[in-house]
Write a protein that binds this DNA or RNA. Structure first.
Lengths: 216, 216
DNA sequence: ATTTTTATTGACCAGTTGGTCAGGAGGTAT
DNA sequence: ATACCTCCTGACCAACTGGTCAATAAAAAT
């Protein structure tokens, strides 16, 4: 594995050193955890990818699990932020369309984070169970209520809001989590800009039409 | 972990012993691989769950990887078989509807296998890459052609067939792979019969309507 | 009955892993 | 300058892992 280069090499202040090394380690950890899973990842691999001695990792992150937890939290934060695209929209087509676009964009830009999250949930969420039960549950309830409002207003068909949300998550995250499979079926090539656009449009079209949010 | 009991305890012929122990080990392995990932799974854990000494596992499966490969192949076979539900259908509503139902059923009955597959693909398909490039690629091409035929016949809207397939996989498998998350959001309870039916119907409705395969 | 093949298992091993630690280097404040 | 705090790292270790093996039991074939 090639090392991740440091952004620059001018003299560093202490604040910067900490911030920079943590970021460096987190980036390497995200990749290694995504590729090998928690159990398959080793601190040595992460250290090599970050270009630091293993002992240095333990200086910034006491345990492998602490490092892992940070990686999982980071992707969760990114998703929460993307969810804001859904608020402030008047119509389902607008709100859900923007949410789909935001999540597809994240799948493209943070495939490793998505995989780590998927892996964590698949294994029973041993380290982020509390997030599921608090933040995620609240978030889901709120958005389900928003969707229900749209249904009550006659702006979309009466579908179960939670299952609709699951469908959005499943479909968008699939492009990150199963990216390798998609790439293999795409003649071994990563999706091009145009293909990502087509994927996003297809997903939007099928779902928005499927819930009767498109006038046609 | 509690042991998986042997089906019966009458005197066994050699054929039966082999078949029974392999099945016993495979079932335990599927569960452990699903819960811990390949790297996190240990032969000792699998042995304990199967109720056999670890050395006995190595008698039937030479290496951990060989055992793992068998687990992955098994779920793949199950999915291929389910795909036949799609053939012989005259309309997209019929064919895709049956396929969705079959895949939802598998997600419910074989959640562990689905997770192992997902994990394998997420980590770059190190042991089943050839399957992706041969069987899966051929299968996908064939079904995409079938969908394209439906489009050409005017039986459904012109959506990209491959992205539609990805959407079917993503949505149905999500109920297995992210089952823990769904359960957590469902007040910690597994989905009931009625909830599984509602999930299946919601998925079918949104997708079939989304591709214009439902007359309404 | 005896030989041969298959199945079983406790004990063992070499390699790897997460994590520790003492000692030193390098900024920062006084 | 010097005392102090943060940062760095090679060497080390106890625990665990996949896998081996020789000895034994059980069944099948002769």
């Amino acid at each position: 594995m090639a090392e991740v280069p440091r952004p620059s090499s001018r003299p560093l202040k202490r604040n910067e050193i900490r911030a920079q090394n943590e970021a460096l380690i987190l980036r390497a950890a995200e990749k290694v955890f995504a590729e090998a899973g928690f159990g398959g990842a080793t601190m040595q691999l992460i250290a090599d990818l970050a270009g630091l001695p293993k002992a240095n990792l333990h200086y910034y992150f006491a345990t492998k699990e602490e490092l892992y937890r940070r990686v999982v939290q980071d992707i969760f934060e990114i998703w929460l932020q993307a969810a804001e695209a859904m608020d402030g929209a008047d119509t389902p087509a607008e709100g859900l369309g923007a949410y789909i676009e935001a999540k597809m964009d994240i799948s493209r830009r943070h495939p490793d984070g998505s995989k780590v999250w998927a892996s964590e949930v698949m294994h029973g969420a041993p380290v982020i169970q509390d997030y599921l039960e608090t933040t995620l549950r609240d978030w889901t309830r709120g958005r389900a209520a928003l969707i229900q409002r749209w249904i009550d207003e006659g702006q979309m068909a009466p579908v179960d809001p939670e299952h609709l949300l699951y469908m959005l998550w499943a479909t968008t995250q699939h492009y990150a989590d199963f990216g390798h499979q998609i790439e293999t079926l795409n003649a071994g090539q990563p999706l091009s800009d145009a293909q990502w656009r087509e994927a996003t449009e297809t997903v939007k079209q099928i779902i928005l039409r499927g819930i009767g949010a498109l006038r046609d």
